[in-house]
Amino acid sequence: MTVFYRGPCIVITHRDFRILRPHPRVFPIRDLRGVHVVVIDRSGVSITVGSSGMAGVAVVVIATGGLDLPAPLALIGGVALFAVATLAGECFRASARRYELRAVCRSEPVLLFATSDVRTFGQVKRGLIRALQAYDG
């Protein structure tokens, strides 16, 4: 048996595409048609998180001003929250794209694999291409 890709969730052989986790399924290579890539851009999420963070900072600064805290303490708290909100926004932006491998198997559209990790996605995609070529050849 020729193995084209082996990972913690996926195994691709010359016969089938096996999903091990989270819901085990097996798709025979001979039944896969119309294999294609879908890229979902979720960059709008980072704008929402950043905006929410900015609103949170404003609320905290206003609230601490009402408690008669010293101005430097209120400023430090506001800057710290702004930094956390910005960092959260950047984390979401870094994983703003989701990559999916989709196909039709026995007349049913199926999602074979999805991730935001570009490297893993490329490895799985290449493994599936090789398996399809081996089946055709």
Score class of each variant (00 low, 15 high):
Arg42Met: 08
Arg42Asp: 09
Ile62Pro: 03
Gly77Lys: 06
Gly65Asn: 11
Val38Tyr: 03
Arg30Asp: 06
Phe27Pro: 08
Arg25Met: 10
Val37Gly: 10
Arg30Tyr: 09
Val39Ile: 09
Gly34Asp: 08
Ser51Trp: 02
Arg33Glu: 04
Val35Asn: 02
Leu67Gln: 14
Pro72Thr: 05
Thr48Cys: 13
Asp31Ile: 00
Ser46His: 05
Gly34Trp: 02
Val60Trp: 11
Ile62Phe: 15
Ala63Arg: 14
Val61Ile: 12
Val45Met: 10
Phe27Gly: 06
Ile47Arg: 12
Arg33Ser: 05
Pro70Gln: 13
Arg42Gly: 12
Pro70Ser: 15
Gly53Pro: 05
Asp68Arg: 06
Gly65Cys: 04
Gly56Gln: 10
His36Thr: 11
Ile40Glu: 13
Gly65Tyr: 08
Gly50Tyr: 09
Thr64Ala: 04
Val37Ser: 09
Val59Gly: 01
Asp31Gly: 03
Leu67Ile: 11
Ile40Ser: 10
Val37Trp: 01
Leu67Pro: 06
Gly44Asn: 05
Gly77Arg: 07
Gly77His: 04
Val35Ile: 09
Gly77Ser: 09
Thr64Cys: 10
Ser46Thr: 14
Arg42Ala: 06
Val39Thr: 12
Arg25Val: 01
Ala58Met: 15
Ala55Ser: 11
Ser51Pro: 06
Ile76Val: 13
Ile40Trp: 00
Ile29His: 06
Ile29Val: 11
Pro72Cys: 10
Met54Tyr: 05
Gly44Ala: 12
Pro24Glu: 07
Gly66Ile: 04
Ala63Asn: 04
Phe27Tyr: 15
His36Asp: 06
Arg33Met: 03
Arg30Gly: 00
Gly44Pro: 01
Leu32Pro: 01
Val49Lys: 06
Leu32Ala: 00
Gly56Trp: 08
Asp41Cys: 04
Ile76Glu: 05
Gly65Val: 02
Ile47Trp: 15
Gly77Val: 05
Pro28Glu: 02
Pro72His: 03
Gly66Met: 15
Asp68Val: 02
Gly53Met: 01
Gly34Ala: 04
Ile76Thr: 10
Ser51Phe: 07
His36Gln: 09
Leu32Ile: 08
Val45Gln: 07
Ile40Tyr: 06
Ile76Asp: 02
Gly65Phe: 07
Val35Met: 13
Val26Asp: 03
Gly65Met: 04
Val37Thr: 15
Val35Ser: 13
Arg42Lys: 15
Ser43Asn: 12
His36Phe: 11
Thr48Ser: 08
Asp31Lys: 02
Pro72Ala: 02
Gly44Leu: 14
Val49Leu: 13
Val59Lys: 03
Ser46Ala: 14
Asp68Asn: 14
Ser52His: 10
Val37Phe: 14
Arg25Thr: 11
Pro28Tyr: 04
Ser52Arg: 14
Leu73His: 02
Ile47Met: 10
Arg42His: 15
Gly44Cys: 03
Ile76Phe: 02
Gly53Lys: 13
Leu75Asp: 06
Asp41Lys: 03
Ser43Ile: 11
Thr64Lys: 09
Leu32Val: 01
Gly34Pro: 06
Val61Ser: 13
Leu32Arg: 01
Ser46Pro: 05
Gly77Asp: 03
Gly34Tyr: 01
Gly34Phe: 00
Leu69Asn: 12
Arg42Val: 01
Gly50Lys: 04
Thr64Phe: 15
Ser43Trp: 11
Gly34Thr: 04
Ser43Tyr: 03
Ser51Met: 15
Gly66Glu: 07
Leu67Tyr: 15
Gly56Ser: 01
Val45Gly: 04
Val57Leu: 07
Pro70Tyr: 08
Leu32Asn: 06
Gly53Cys: 01
Asp31Glu: 11
Gly34Met: 02
Asp41Tyr: 05
Leu67Met: 14
Val38Asp: 14
